[in-house]
Design a protein around this nucleic acid. Structure first.
Length: 288
DNA sequence: AAGATTGTTGCTTA
DNA sequence: TTAAGCAACAATCT
């Protein structure tokens, strides 16, 4: 599941490989994936260049020039952005590591971009939850204001901002951290990891956390996200970077996907329950 | 073969 | 008016 570290990994990859490239052509395979009519999408994007790559929570924001528009990309659960340079294409894909993304476009390709220098970018999404849509500055600002709280690893995210958001909330802390308006970018995997590292039970009500717990939780949110980015994210099922490579943080997960396996601290088996409709992993002994 | 998988939206309920 | 809860979506795997 692409969460903040995975989307940041993709953002950095794209920025390194696609900066300044001009769209020569594109193809929409799934109308549902692009919010506007495919014809409008095509007309608007053709001839535009990618001049900046930004991210807000799990939302990827590409600045288009000269249109002064933005391409918003959300990977949701199974979205992937796979890049092919012209030299890789000439090599027939044999130099590429992961196998099932060698032949592109494939049946999961929803949008393909073809650039002036011969390179290509594919938006693949098995489950069609993700989207690629156009927005102007006003629409982008509205989307961010309505849905995204403080951004971890930036100045907007502080102990005070986190405390402010959580102190009145009568939902469990897991649901509160999943809510993008309280803190942007955490999903099911990192919320479980954060709560384990902070020693807090996912069932605890958000408004019951003490100042000390909030401070520790704030610290581990930053630490875990930073570390996960340095490992190019977590691949649990589908996530790959723009070269089709899996993320390496998976081996560092302490609780997510480890039900029944021994806790790294006390060796008791990790518990798995359903909370707010989501699979939730924690240690009965180490998390209070 | 039913149930689990999850990010987000939008509807319903309190 | 606001917050909380939850179904719905999509396609695949176990």
């Amino acid at each position: 599941m692409p969460e903040l570290p995975e989307v940041e990994t993709v953002r950095r990859d794209l920025s390194r490989r696609l900066l300044g490239k001009k769209i020569k052509n594109l193809k929409v395979f799934s109308d549902k994936t692009v919010a506007s009519a495919a014809a409008v999408f095509y007309r608007t994007l053709k001839g535009q260049s990618f001049v900046d790559f930004d991210r807000r929570g799990k939302l990827l924001i590409i600045t288009l020039s000269p249109a002064n528009l933005f391409l918003l990309i959300h990977l949701k659960m199974t979205g992937q952005l796979i890049y092919r340079s012209s030299t890789e294409l000439l090599a027939g894909g044999h130099s590429l590591g992961e196998s099932d993304v060698v032949n592109l476009p494939n049946k999961h390709t929803r949008v393909a971009f073809y650039f002036n220098d011969g390179s290509q970018l594919f938006f693949n999404d098995m489950r069609k939850f993700g989207y690629v849509k156009l927005a102007n500055r006003e629409e982008l600002d509205r989307i961010i204001a309505a849905g995204y709280g403080p951004e971890p690893l930036t100045k907007s995210f502080t102990i005070d901002s986190l405390t402010d958001k959580l102190r009145t909330k009568k939902v469990n802390i897991k649901a509160a951290l999943l809510n993008q308006k309280n803190v942007a970018g955490l999903g099911n995997i990192y919320v479980d990891e954060v709560l384990f590292a902070a020693g807090i039970r996912p069932q605890r009500l958000a408004n019951s956390l003490r100042a000390k717990e909030l401070a520790l939780m704030y610290q581990v949110i930053n630490d875990i996200l930073k570390k996960a980015i340095s490992y190019k994210g977590t691949t649990f099922r589908d996530f790959v970077d723009t070269k089709g490579q899996k993320g390496n943080f998976s081996k560092h997960l302490q609780v997510y996907g480890r039900a029944g396996q021994p806790c790294a601290i006390c060796r008791r088996p990790i518990t798995k329950i359903k909370l707010t409709g989501r699979g939730t992993h924690y240690c009965e002994r180490c998390q209070r």
